[in-house]
């Protein structure tokens, strides 16, 4: 198994895809970070202007102490992890398209071994992408935010944890979809459509039907919940007592409306990844490689 993991790792490092996708990931994270800081600054200036004093009384702290950057960071992580997901989606689909899967299966004790080795390597890559996202995002936010809006050390650590987790889980989900749909363009387009369009429409419909709790159990809803819930929790812990209505609004701003607790959201998405990977596994196991 160690041999196969080594082989899969070499496959990813001997072509340029990993940095070809890492560059836009980093640029996107940095851009979101910079924008988050600037928007937060603008919002705090507006909130401090006098007309909205009630809100600050409500939250028990003055606006310049609101950790508004947390919301932007949660959203930034959600968007940036699209790239590691695409990277994962190409793991198996590109091998089938390029027909390198033949040699891969000829040199592995079984197809199961080959797929598991691949999954392990992509978990590692998911973590690397997650760390890169956090690094560039953090730099962007720190450059444009005033210190009062930034999370404390514990907050940074928690955000880094969920960012890496989120990235790993998204990559695993991608690997599963890539196995299920053995066509690079098909797998990538479907993933992008689903995560950027289809599920957002679904969220709107579910919110309209007044069953927002369902959102937290959908793939995109649960992965957003992982980061969104953490950012809301961190914001609230620094903001004092907040009525439930305001909390719902804050969740929506963090992109985590209807979401469960962060750890439950993570488990829900892990289950989705598991289901997709099991499906991809079954398809690959039964497939005639011609």
């Amino acid at each position: 198994m160690g041999n196969l993991v080594g082989a899969e790792l070499r496959k990813t490092t001997t072509t340029g895809l990993w940095w070809g996708l890492l560059i836009p990931t980093a640029v996107l994270a940095l851009g979101w970070g910079l924008a988050t800081g600037m928007l937060g600054q603008f919002f705090v200036d507006f909130a401090s202007s006098g007309d909205v004093d009630e809100v600050s009384d409500f939250l028990g702290v003055t606006p310049d102490q609101w950790k508004v950057s947390l919301f932007g960071m949660a959203r930034a992580i959600n968007v940036s992890t699209i790239f590691p997901m695409v990277f994962g989606a190409m793991a198996i689909s590109s091998e089938i398209s390029r027909r390198t899967i033949t040699t891969t299966f000829l040199t592995a004790p079984s197809r199961m071994h080959a797929l598991l080795a691949k999954m392990l390597v992509y978990v590692l890559w998911g973590a690397i992408y997650g760390l890169a996202i956090m690094l560039f995002l953090g730099v962007g936010v720190a450059l444009t935010s005033s210190p009062g809006q930034l999370p404390d050390a514990g907050g940074w650590a928690m955000l880094t944890l969920v960012c890496v987790l989120s990235s790993i889980l998204m990559t695993m989900f991608g690997v599963g979809v890539g196995a299920l749909i053995p066509n690079v363009a098909g797998a990538v387009v479907l993933l992008l459509l689903y995560f950027l369009v289809i599920e957002n429409v679904l969220h709107g419909v579910l919110a309209y039907l007044e069953v927002p709790a369902v959102i937290g159990f959908l793939p995109n809803g649960s992965i957003n919940g992982l980061t969104g819930s953490v950012s809301v929790d961190l914001f609230l812990s620094a903001a004092g007592v907040v009525p439930p209505e305001i909390e719902d609004v804050l969740r929506a701003i963090a992109g985590a409306s209807g979401a469960q607790d962060w750890w439950l959201s993570g488990i829900v998405f892990l289950l989705w990844s598991g289901v997709v990977f099991a499906g991809g596994w079954a398809v690959t196991q039964a497939k005639d490689i011609t």
């Binding site: 082989a7 070499r10 496959k11 001997t14 072509t15 390029r98 390198t100 040699t103 011609t290």
Partner: peptide, 17 residues
């Protein structure tokens, strides 16, 4: 119809396997 990744060098291809 046994494929190769076009961007991988021959030596790297062999090292993978």
């Amino acid at each position: 119809a046994q494929g190769f990744h076009p961007a991988r060098t021959a030596r790297n291809h062999l090292r993978v396997y």
